[in-house]
Design a protein around this nucleic acid. Structure first.
Lengths: 149, 149
DNA sequence: CCGGAATTGCTGCCCTTTCACATTATAGGC
DNA sequence: GCCTATAATGTGAAAGGGCAGCAATTCCGG
C-alpha cells in the first residue's frame, strides 16, 4: 500500500463532504500499517489508542462503517463472532479467503476467476452481480502435514 | 425433503451416541417443514414453541449447533446480525446465495461449478479444500426493473 | 478568525448467543 | 417393564459485539 494512497482516500472523503478528522486519519494510518491482517474493530481500537489515547471505541466503529460505505475498506466475517476489516487495494474484485478449520489461520488467494460463474448467475436468474464473497474451508498445508505425520 | 429423511437423521444421531429427545425431533420436523427458508434461531424457536411450548431457547441453540456439527444442517450468515440455518440435502457441495443489496432477499443458485477453482487453490497453496461458502451481492430482477422504470 | 454543522466520547442499551446448575428424560441392561 | 447412569433440558442471567443518544468539541468555508 503506497503512502500516496492516504491522500487519495482523504480526497475521497472530501468529495463526499466528510470531514478529515485526526481520528479518521489515525485509523486509516493504522489500517495501512497492518494490511493483510484482518483486524477486528477492537484490535484497531487498541492499536489506535496507543497513538491517540483519547479516541473512543464508538468512533472506531463509526469510521469503519463510513469507510466500508465508501468502498475504502471491506467488512468481512470469518465466523469468529466479530467483524474484521481490510483496506481495499483498488481492484474491482477481491481475493478469496482460505480458512483453516483446524488452526483458524486465514490465507488469501489472489485469483478471482468467477466471471464465468457470475455471467451464468446473471443469465439464469436475472440477478445483477455487483460483488461477491468466497470463503474456502479446509486444511492449510501445515495442518495437513501435521495430520499425516 | 422426503419424510424418510427424519429416520436417516435420527439414525445418524444414534450412531454418534446422541439421544433422541422429543425436543430434537420437534426442531427437526420444523426444519423439514420450512426448507429453503433460511430460518434464524429465534424463528425456529417460535415455530417449535407452538408445538412444544415448554422448550427453551438454549435448547434450540444447542440442537442447531449439534446438527451443524453432524453436517445435518448448515449455519449461514447473511450479514443481518444473526445466524441462519438450512437443512443439508445430502449433496457434497451446497448451492450459492444471491443477496439483493436493495431489498435483502436471498435467492439460491443451484449450480456449484467451483471444482476448477478449488483444484487451483489446492495446487497453488497446498490448502485442502473441504467446503466453501459463496455469496453474490447485487440487485435481484425485481429491484433491477424497479431501478430502470 | 467565526459560526454552523459535522464529529466525537461517553454511557448505557440492545441483541444474539452462551453459561451454570438444578431438574428431568433417555436408553441400555436386567 | 423397571432402574439407573448419564446426557439433555429449562431457567435465568450474563457475556460480548455493536450501536444510539446527547452534550461537548472540532472542523472548515467564508
Amino acid at each position: 500500500m503506497p503512502q500516496r494512497a492516504l491522500e487519495v482516500i482523504c480526497r475521497k472523503l472530501h468529495e463526499h463532504d466528510y470531514k478529515l478528522t485526526r481520528q479518521r486519519q489515525v485509523i486509516l494510518e493504522a489500517l495501512m500499517e497492518h494490511t493483510a491482517c484482518h483486524l477486528s474493530a477492537e484490535e484497531i481500537y487498541s492499536i489506535v489508542k496507543q497513538r491517540y489515547p483519547d479516541i473512543g471505541l464508538a468512533t472506531v466503529y463509526r469510521t469503519l462503517e463510513l469507510l466500508a460505505e465508501l468502498d475504502i475498506l471491506q467488512k468481512m466475517d470469518f465466523d469468529d463472532g466479530r467483524s474484521r476489516y481490510e483496506l481495499n487495494d483498488g481492484a474491482v474484485h477481491h481475493h478469496h479467503h482460505l480458512i483453516c478449520v483446524k488452526c483458524g489461520r486465514v490465507i488469501e488467494f489472489a485469483d478471482d476467476l468467477l466471471e464465468t460463474l457470475e455471467a451464468m448467475v446473471s443469465r439464469k436468474t436475472g440477478f445483477q452481480v455487483l460483488d461477491h464473497h468466497l470463503k474456502f474451508y479446509g486444511l492449510c498445508g501445515a495442518c495437513r502435514t501435521a495430520d499425516e505425520g
